[in-house]
Amino acid sequence: MIQLFNVSKIYQGEVTVEALKDINLHIKRGEFVFLVGPSGAGKSTLTRLLIREELPTEGQILVNGKSLLRLREREVPYYRRKIGFVFQDFRLLMERTVYENVAFAMEAIEMPRHEVKEQVPAILEMVGLEDKLNFYPHQLSGGQQQRVCIARAIANNPLIVIADEPTGNLDPDTSWEVMNLLQAINKRGTTVITATHDRDIVNRMQKRVIALDAGHLIRDEERGEY
């Protein structure tokens, strides 16, 4: 599903930063993967490469058998429709309701209006927010906001969900709600990649753990710990 071959990313600037160094990685369809490591280890760079926001300096990335390096600029939007993104800071539109926030993602990929109307409630039911359709984000708790964000990420039935520190702003109980939700999504066959600092969650979920440090892949274990 996702294959990285000798991937390096170097940011040229006043100070040259080697964000990723010679990474080889293979993530299979339907896997649940934790991406761990201290700040600046290269987790965010890796996610940016995967959504084709940036191109690697060296190496090759294949997703679903297709090279991201050879993707044309106008194909990028279509590629991104296969990926759902969950952010640490939720990135919801504050002046729009829960319903509109989810519908927004479907409208953006030009789904017909009647389908949007049908599917938004179904997806919000899946994340347990069916009674909050007309609430605004600021009327919700942090965990609920994150669930809206997850609903938006899975709205277009992506093959892969990438979550960047999804529990970073949440208390432990709420964190578990969110992780359980991600696990449920994974059970439906979606590949889930979660970058996190949360030692407790990683240790207890017993999933594959990929550890990065200073741009190097230092550990890759099935059923690993932090």
Binding site: I51, R74, P77, Y78, Y79, R80, R81, I83, F85, R91, L93, F104, A105, A108, I109, E110, R152, A155, N156
Partner: peptide, 12 residues
């Protein structure tokens, strides 16, 4: 912000 999110979810 809206445009950024649109791009991420795959709007052309």
């Amino acid at each position: 912000r809206e445009i950024g999110i649109m791009k991420l979810v795959g709007a052309t």
